[in-house]
Design a protein around this nucleic acid. Structure first.
Length: 510
RNA sequence: GGUCCAUUCGUCUAUCGGUUAGGACGCAAGAUUUUCAUUCUUGAAAGAGGAGUUCGACUCUCCUAUGGACUACCA
């Protein structure tokens, strides 16, 4: 690529960023890094009505959590600052006027209410109202009104908008890096609003093109929902005379609901029992939504899962670090069709990352949970316990259930296991085993296993009966790792204590 | 309704004209095991339909069907 790669992620702060947005950001980031380019974060807050306090901070924190680094933009600054469109307000009017003067746009004085009426009337007549070449010279616009009247209306403070003057019958030919060649006839398009005088702000279309141009964006990688407005954007580049430096476009397939039936939306999450947001979210009105982070997902697993939803490396590798994603990413391996999000797969990815964590990493993550449960222990022991059981866990939060008996002696016993093993000769045998254990000096896993194994063999006892009875005493249930993992972990003294406890406190089943 | 995009196992996907259509998740069975798991092995499971082009089509073209997006003074 001869030209410097500059991509942008340009969310609108209308609420928490959902996972589809995170994926768009991720693909932009991977593409930028892959080509040694820059990743820009621009906040598109041109809709004052829908602005949600806290959303911008949420977006920034989400990207940070995911490891998506911003080179330029809101929060980090850069040569094209400001990167928040509300702070660039004064830039856009000039460009809107430039378009009007060049005959590519015009003023329109309709009120929102008037347009609503026109739409309703058309609907009632079984038609669709389109603001386009068929009506723009009949409605109050600078195309139908005299120059004087237009100036007068503007001067006296009538509200107006600038609309793009969509050519009447022209085929726009476009190229998309993912979809290939696309053609659209402009007659099917309408005259989009580019600028609104009421709040002195541009709409997405104008702000987007102007900023992408000013910020020297080389590639626009965004969701497929923008594909229908691509012809307008092409025409805008042409109207401004910027077609030579126009960015290349790539429209990403959508993320669909697990059930099919539509794109994943902000409301789907809690309804279907999985998070749709990266981070926990509290809206200004107090509503909350689950987040992957708080639900126990590792950022690396979340990113890995998202990366593979709509892109694949062409090999059978599925586990990728961020660096591996960067090294392998390319837009031509992005699929064209929407990808249904599957919560089960997300869990699987998390489990994979869990299994590969070191004891040290696990200790750090697990300690807070141990403390919550009233356990004070060393990082070494926390990590060791987690390490023994990690392969059975999907989330860090699973570990407590899986390892609590390493730290806390059972005082109640699982009913099923009790009925099965706390009967017959087993209690007496456990007493014998206690003495065997008491005589062992080297309580390591290997030695204990050798001594106890030899004893069972010599006595010709049933391995299953002995071990499960011991398990009942030490764990309190029919679960857990190999018995000698437990004995070695809790140590001789604690072992004997737990055996004594069950012998004294649990009545054998007759 | 209109415009545009898409369509391989239930799901995510590989295949870039010639394959027994491969992998992963999930599911089922078996093996291992002192328990619960893990793990391992195996299995079931797909080219939407119809025309063409071609020696040959999942792959190219067209039609149909289905799904989706867009159709705001929202992004």
């Amino acid at each position: 690529m001869s030209q410097e790669v500059r991509v942008r992620f340009a969310p609108s702060p209308t609420g928490p960023l959902h996972m589809g947005g995170v994926r768009t950001a991720l693909y932009n980031y991977l593409f930028a890094r892959r080509h040694g380019g820059k990743m820009i974060l621009r906040i598109e807050d041109t809709d004052s009505q829908r602005f949600v306090p806290g959303a911008e901070e949420y977006i920034i924190e989400s990207l940070k959590w995911c490891g998506i680094e911003i080179d330029e933009g809101v929060g980090v600054g850069g040569p094209h600052a400001p990167y928040r469109q509300s702070e660039r307000k004064e830039i856009y009017l000039k460009y809107a006027k430039q378009l009007v003067e060049a005959g590519w746009a015009y003023y329109a004085f309709d009120t929102a209410e008037e347009l609503d009426v026109l739409r309703k009337d058309a609907e009632a007549a079984g038609q669709t109202f389109a603001y386009n070449y068929t009506v723009r010279e009949k409605l109050p616009t600078s195309l139908s009104l005299s120059k004087e009247e237009v100036e007068e209306r503007i001067a006296r403070g009538d509200i107006w908008v600038v609309r793009f003057k969509m050519p009447e019958n022209e085929v726009v030919e476009m190229d998309d890096l993912i979809r290939g060649h696309v053609k659209v006839n402009t007659s099917t398009l309408d005259d989009k609003v580019l600028y609104k005088s009421a709040d002195a702000l541009p709409t997405y279309h104008l702000a987007n093109i102007v900023d992408d141009h000013l910020m020297e964006i080389s590639h626009v990688i965004r969701g497929e929902e923008w594909l229908p407005s691509l012809p307008l954007h092409y025409l805008l580049y042409r109207a401004f005379g910027w077609q030579d430096s126009q960015p290349q476009f790539a429209h990403l397939p959508l993320l669909l609901k697990p059930t099919g039936g539509g794109k994943l939306s902000k409301r789907d999450g809690d309804k279907m029992g999985f998070p749709v947001f990266p981070l926990f979210w509290t809206s200004p009105t107090g509503e909350t939504a689950h987040g992957y982070r708080e639900d126990g997902y590792f950022a690396e697993a979340f990113v890995n899962m998202l990366a593979l939803l709509g892109w694949n490396p062409g090999t059978e590798q599925e586990i990728f670090s961020m660096q591996e994603l960067i090294d392998n990413f390319s837009l031509d391996r992005v699929s064209k069709s929407g990808a249904r999000f599957q919560p089960d797969k997300a869990k699987w990815f998390n489990a994979q990352y869990m299994h590969h964590k070191s004891d040290e990493e696990l200790a750090e993550l697990y300690q807070p949970i141990l403390r919550e449960n009233g356990v004070e222990t060393t990082d070494e022991l926390a990590g060791k316990a987690a390490g023994i059981m990690k392969e059975r866990a999907t989330f860090i939060g699973d570990l407590w259930d899986l390892t609590s008996y390493f730290f806390v002696a059972p005082t109640t016993y699982d009913e099923k296991q009790t009925k099965k093993y706390w009967k017959g000769e087993n209690p007496a045998r456990l007493k014998e085993l206690r003495e065997v254990l008491a005589s062992i000096d080297d309580f390591s896993k290997e030695n204990t296993e050798a001594v106890v194994g030899a004893w069972i063999a010599e006595k010709e006892y049933g391995m299953g009966q002995i071990m499960n009875t011991l398990r009942l005493a030490l764990v309190g249930a029919g679960k857990g790792p190999g018995m000698y993992d437990v004995t070695a972990f809790i140590g001789k003294e604690e072992c004997l204590k737990r055996i004594d406890y069950i012998l004294e406190n649990l009545k054998p089943i007759e």
